[in-house]
């Protein structure tokens, strides 16, 4: 379990052409999260959520402001699940799992099998990614992220490229894995319903990279979409989302 602290973060990208305006992807974001929490970042495209994730993971650097990811005052270990599975196509599933870990071969295998079982793919450990469906590949990606025992787990719209049915079952799997392993999760999505189902806190970003909303979701896990409470919460959050969109349209128009 880790602590993530973001203070006054901004990020600008240089202009595409001479004389153009630099792109202000993030304009001042601050928030904090720690412990066994599942936090979703929701927002329309262009709100900077993927950029934020890149900065937190260290792939990108902020233009100003600070990002601190700590685990007991030390640098935290990160796990990352991408939109596409990003498996090495020339290695088997097991070899892919072993690639990201620093454990010995034996320990690594035992560890990998444990997580592959959680996603129901222990039988596939000697198969190549090309032989698996998109959903199965993504499950391997999730298992891989969990297997390094990260303090902070970053997930960038991991289900957006899957069909609805597969996505739904993967969401359930993710939820049970999270319950079982107590990780700090930062989850990016554009799907409000997905956020309501999975998280206990939803941070909404507005277009242009500012925090619009920060709301707790007080439903017990596991959550069912058929639950009326679920529907109420979801309607509330969607309403606030729509307000934000309306405000933005006003400003633009």
């Amino acid at each position: 379990m880790a602590t993530l602290q973001i203070t006054n973060l901004t990020k600008s990208f240089p202009a595409h052409s001479k004389g153009g305006q630099p792109t202000r992807a993030i304009q001042g974001i601050s928030f904090e999260m720690s412990g066994q929490v599942f936090v979703s970042l929701v927002g329309p495209s262009g709100c900077g959520k993927s950029t934020l994730l890149n900065i937190v993971s260290g792939v990108d650097t902020p233009s100003s402001g600070t990002v601190a990811v700590t685990q007991d005052s030390q640098k935290a270990k990160l796990g990352y699940v991408f939109q596409d599975p990003r498996l090495l196509p020339w290695r088997t599933v097991m070899q892919n799992m072993l690639y990201v870990t620093d454990l010995s071969e034996e320990e690594g295998r035992v560890n990998a099998r444990r997580y592959l079982e959680m996603v129901g793919l222990d039988h596939a450990e000697d198969m190549f990614p090309g032989q698996l469906s998109g959903g199965m590949q993504q499950r391997v990606g999730i298992a891989r992220a969990f297997s390094v025992d990260p303090d902070l787990l970053l997930m960038d719209e991991p289900f957006s490229h899957l069909d609805a049915i597969t996505a739904r079952s993967l969401r359930e799997e993710l939820q049970s894995m999270w319950n079982a392993t107590k990780k700090t999760v930062l989850f990016v999505t554009h799907d409000v319903m997905e956020a309501v189902q999975l998280s206990d806190r939803i941070i909404t970003l507005a277009h242009g990279g500012t925090v619009f909303d920060d709301v707790a979701v007080d439903l017990p896990f596991p959550r069912k979409a058929s639950d009326p409470d679920f529907a109420t919460h979801q309607a509330e959050i969607l309403a606030r989302f729509e307000t934000m969109e309306a405000e933005r349209a006003e400003k633009a128009g």
């Binding site: 993971s57 260290g58 792939v59 990160l78 796990g79 990352y80 991408f82 596409d84 990003r86 090495l88 690639y99 990201v100 390094v148």
Partner: peptide, 16 residues
């Protein structure tokens, strides 16, 4: 390059 980025996200060094 996606695979390279994945590798650095997981802390793999240049040799790996």
């Amino acid at each position: 390059q996606d695979l390279v980025r994945m590798s650095s996200a997981y802390g793999r060094n240049e040799r790996q």
